[in-house]
Nucleic acid binder design. Sequence first.
DNA 1: CTCACGCTCTTTTTT
DNA 2: AGAGCGTGAG
Length: 764
Amino acid sequence: MTDLLKNLNENQKAAVLHTDGPLLILAGAGSGKTRVITHRIAHLISTGVKPWNIFAVTFTNKACEEMKKRVMTIVGPQGNSVFIKTFHSAAVYILRRFGEDIKIPSSFTIYDTGDQEDVIKRILASMNLDPKKVKPSMIASKISEVKDSERFIDGVDVSLLLPDYFSFNFEEIFKKYQEKLAENNALDFNDLLIKTVELLRNSKRALTELQRMWQYFMIDEYQDTNHSQYIIAKYLASATKNICVVGDDDQSIYSWRGADIRNILTFEKDYEKTKIITLGENYRSSKQILDAAYSVIQNNGNRKDKNIIAFRGDGERAVWCMANNEYGEGEFVVNTILSIKSREKLKNSDFAIFYRTNAQSRIFEDFLRRENLPYRIIGGLKFYERKEIKDILAYLKFLVNPGDTVALRRIINTPARGIGKASQDRIAEIAEKENLPEWVVIRDELMTGRVPKGLDDFRKIIVKLMRMMETVPGELTLSQFMKSVIDITGYRESLREENTLESNSRLDNLDELLNSIYDYEQTFPDAAPANFIQDISLYTSEENPSDDPEAKTNSITLMTVHNAKGLEFPVVFLTGMEEDTFPHKLSVDTDEGIEEERRLCYVGITRAMDRIFLTSTDLRRSYMGPEYKRPSRFLSEIPRDLLDVKSYTSEYSGGRDYSGGGYSYNGYSPQRRESAASAAPVKKYQLPVEDKNSVLPPVELAEQQELSATGSQFLLRERVLHPKYGPGRIVKIEGSGDNIKLTISFGITNRVFMEKYTPLQKMN
DNA sequence: CTCACGCTCTTTTTT
DNA sequence: AGAGCGTGAG
């Protein structure tokens, strides 16, 4: 067992050896935190603690997976018996076992954000509120915010928690929402935690039982816990007080979700005789990277200053590359990857591209595909959020829980059976009047008047599937049953008939779903449909289930900075380092907002082991049109001697253009070209000729603008007056002679005209 | 009732 | 650039 401690420093050792009593580990980035946790688990087991007596929770699915993997490598198969979960899945486990004590049937389903919004939409409709003026997503996040709040969890009435500035009755919506969920036997993400708190408060039996089972607690990312998570931990650990929490206030990035940084700052007050251990040595990043990261985070006022010691040598300087636009940024990133790969023996999986928002991923994907570089995206468009997957899972949800009207609405006319809105409303009406579930109205054929033919089909399909499901698992495996669901409902058939590119990809996705169910039942052979449904809802942040392991290890990773927490890569690209992108526009108004963005930036930089590239653009297109960008303030917080500044200009524009006069200019004039040492352009793309000039050139390059060689009487970028559309600007000239086509931008929209037939007037 | 088309609005991070 | 909605034809 001395082996276990061999590769640890003094503080890490102390943390591993302190097994009994409260322990607070302040673990800076790269300080070997996960290592300590896993070794600590191994050490506990080696001293005779049973694996199933250990409870370890992390915050995200990915971190959880990582921890499981690493525990398994150290302790072997008995690692399987250690309870390692996310907070939410731990809550599901607890509620499934003991929820009956507070009247939560164990068959409850979990509503994700989409389901929540469906419920809210229907409530808004019933209250005659315009979903355009009152956005369901806004209501959903407000509801979530209330439910996350400390006072709500401590029992304060909703009416006292609501701001009074709403033009509508929020309280009524809230109450109806809660009723609807109860009616549907559903819990949302907040409920999982809240109900667990309620259970632990009210069920002595549950608490005793759980406390007997779990005697050692470990909570990772403690700075990200919200109030209910804090309470849950407190209840569970109250018997033994063997609680070890790990965190770093500099990496708190979830306050918008109710995470309360005070939980870590006051831990020592909550638990008497807390032992505090600081892990201040960074083993991950080379010194220059660490210094850059540190120079950023130092600008936060509200933090405990810590002395982070770089263990590694100086390494390479951080690079800041200013690109002319997002295509330049994408090209720079991909070129740099190719260039590094050609010089150094690095695998694709050694590279990661981070961005602030998921929407930024697309351009990187395009460039990576172009170069045939395999990549995988974490988060973003999630597999289980695809329409066809949600549809089929909605069938299963409904079969398991026929009270789930959200699922019913989803499937009743999917595929189309001629049961339209009118019929659906009538069913709901009858159900309301007779005080029966909607499904019973359908099942017992209580509908009067004109009954759509398809309704009878639907009834038969559901009854048949319900009978079939009774034989699962047993006669039928879950995956066999799900295959039947896809077939019997006619879903597969309707996609086959469509026979488009899209429908075929949907069919593929359904096969992937069946594969993932098959995998699931290998792990849990006795799993009933209900268990599967419950597990799957929490699985949403997982990547595509069919990603084969090979691809996983040989792919470049793309993800948001939030998703990057806890991970590390030899080469990191932190992209979109512009004001209003990172820090994000919606966070810049408050000091707290800025500080959280800064912590996020710190998290991003400290993921890098050997090299970090920060990129910004001068001009970025969004759906609002092109916008001039100023470099992120975080860049200016890094001293110049820690930054290698480059610039990169791409002529590629993705076949689109930036022109049209309508872009906003927020006062920044790019005066950077003097340092224009172009970075590692390994390879220029073959550009379609007509794309060549379609990027609006930077101001100082404007004079280099070539004259159009097509024989047009107009010049590129010339201002013209169109008789019908008014003033515009020529952004593209194609063809020659009588066949010249002009693309003219009028603010947001572009239109193409034949020069010959269009009476344009020059405007200069 | 369904489908297709065109219009509008979209602006963060995740369990 | 894309989703979601309303409208109008079949």
